[in-house]
Design a binder for these strands. Structure first.
Length: 275
DNA sequence: ATGGTTGGGATCCAA
């Protein structure tokens, strides 16, 4: 009888990936899971209703826990694990039930939050662009929520496509992107406030110095994405301060951006010792 | 200054 395995001893690997439609990328996902087999996998932009989710692939790879929250066409988040984890919460950001958050309680009590922050449209003005206004509201709400978490002081991990590249080295050209949605000062400063509200530790920058360029997303519109390398770091893994010393490794799996039928985002894998 | 690509699900929207 297949039983859900107990929590692994020692470090676990945790992946986050904006997959840009799971049904369009079953082969890509299969290859990724064969090669990297993370213990826990968080997805954003699954773009599929729950009753149409392709469970078989994840079943075949041993993800006995599958927590999904999808809607037709857009958004959609999911958490998979090779061992038992509990659904913790599904937050409706800004009062909209639009499938941008799902969270799970891991065996040691750490709560894992998976977010998909709105991209925010093209015009970086909340008066002229409702989508940008909504993005800023979501960031403000996540900041207030982070402050509440800080009061409780539990162990938390926050991952996802946050659609903001906070540091100058998180974009290919700081100057040229200052007025481009994802790197405007109101967004980058908003993100820093959110980090400060819970003392979130940027798990990827914990290993990659801020002087070094680092991206997780390259637009489909650039025909020569790798050579041009006009990327942005939109995807993040943050941990609450008491987990900082438990971080073992972090890596953007850029190779996945170069595969056939790739997502425009690369996955990130963090190794953390929750034991 | 502009247009470039992709996926979903309808003939356009979101990214």
């Amino acid at each position: 009888m297949p039983k859900k395995p107990a929590a692994p001893k020692g470090p676990i690997t945790l992946a986050t990936w904006n997959i840009n439609s799971i049904r369009a990328r079953l082969d890509l996902m299969d290859g990724f899971l064969r090669q990297y087999a993370p213990d826990v996998l968080c997805l954003q932009e699954t773009k599929v209703r729950d009753d149409q989710f392709p469970h078989e692939l994840f079943d075949a790879h041993g993800y006995t826990t599958r927590l999904i929250k999808g809607q037709p066409g857009y958004n959609g988040v999911a958490i998979f694990a090779k061992h038992q984890v509990e659904l913790h919460e599904m937050r409706a950001l800004c009062g909209r039930n639009d499938c941008r958050h799902i969270s799970a309680k891991l065996p040691d009590g750490t709560v894992l939050h998976n977010y998909y922050v709105p991209a925010g449209g093209d015009v970086p003005d909340p008066v002229k662009n409702d989508k940008f206004a909504h993005k800023l509201e979501v960031v403000a709400e996540m900041t207030a929520w982070s402050m509440e978490l800080k009061k409780k002081g539990g162990k938390e991990i926050l991952v996802g496509d946050l659609n903001i590249a906070p540091l100058e080295t998180d974009v290919w050209s700081h100057k040229q992107l200052l007025n481009v949605v994802s790197h405007t000062p109101v967004e980058t400063e908003g993100m820093l406030k959110m980090q400060a509200a819970r003392d979130w530790v940027d798990a990827v920058r914990h290993f990659v110095p801020a002087e070094q360029k680092l991206y997780s997303w390259w637009s489909y519109r650039s025909p020569n994405w790798e050579l041009a390398d006009k990327g942005r770091r939109l995807d993040h893994v943050w941990v609450s301060p008491q987990l900082k010393g438990k971080l073992k490794h972090a890596q953007v799996i850029k190779e996945m951006r170069g595969k056939e039928k790739a997502s425009d985002h690369a996955p990130i894998i963090v190794t953390i010792d929750l034991g």
